[in-house]
Amino acid sequence: MAETTDAQSLTTLIVDDEPLAVERIQVICAEIDATRVVGTASDGAAALRLAEKLSPDLVLLDMTMPELDGLAVARRLAEHENPPAVIFVTAHDHFAVEAFDLEAIDYVLKPVSAERLERAIERALRHSGSRSGSDDIGRSDSQWLDELWVPHRSELLRIAIDEVHQIDAERDYVRLHVGDPSGPPEASRTYLLLQTIAGLEARLDPDRFIRIHRSTILRRDTIRGLRHDGLGVWSAELQNGEALRIGRTYLSKVKAMAGR
């Protein structure tokens, strides 16, 4: 990373109940010009006390801690007049949706690599720069999701919601289809996310996505047309030529989209 000035560095609080994890993150941060560690805490209550006293720009926050966990700490920090940026550093990938709801900057999986943490801190630095001089602290007023974090290998990827063209239910998970909706289905990249399809549907903009079946949500602009297959059965024809059956429960809403 290129050297940064003091004005560009982020005062940083490290919160983790594992001393070795704190030590490792401190060592990594010492090599990153954009951070200046001003304190460490081993539990959520201590983290909140230090955050109140030190007003850090950035909190590197473990997710699972006794009594007050990382999500609870992040919610309390968000209530501050000038809340710090939060990067979750955790061994568990299944809290990503909750972390996203709290507008965390990033979600880094343990064991932490120097390169991965540096990328997350660079994102926090850009976020800090975009907030300077702004009264709205850079937070979106939209109630709908703009992006998702999905587990992939040893990290989590950010995926813009506009890149997702189909969502399929797989028990307690959803499978996200990402890529060119006009290409063959096998050309799409897919990712599993621990989230029910009903829970995800509630977070999606209904002007951009529509549920056509208990197991399927489609991005509206990928639907080329509707086809009547007889006996009251309808299908949605997609840009790639595929046809997906429309569930009876969802048929009236899909027809209303087409002005029928």
Rank of each mutant, 00 (worst) to 15 (best):
H92D: 03
E103L: 01
V27D: 15
A96V: 09
A2W: 08
A124Q: 04
T40G: 08
G179Y: 07
V164A: 02
M257H: 13
D106F: 00
G225T: 07
R227F: 10
V254T: 05
K53R: 15
N82P: 00
A104C: 11
L77N: 01
L218W: 09
I167E: 08
I217R: 07
R131P: 03
T11W: 07
M65H: 08
T196I: 00
S128G: 07
I217A: 06
R260T: 11
P83T: 00
G230S: 07
I161E: 03
R219Q: 13
L204T: 02
I121V: 15
V178N: 02
R203G: 03
F95K: 00
V97Q: 00
A258S: 14
L54C: 11
L54V: 10
G247E: 05
D93Y: 01
Q239R: 13
G138C: 07
D135K: 05
H213S: 03
Q195T: 08
D205Q: 05
F95T: 00
M257G: 06
A124L: 05
R224C: 10
G225P: 04
V86M: 00
R224K: 14
S188I: 02
H92K: 02
E147G: 10
H228A: 13
P206T: 05
H94A: 05
A47C: 11
F88Q: 02
L20D: 15
R126D: 12
F88E: 02
D180H: 01
A21L: 07
L13G: 11
T249L: 09
G241H: 10
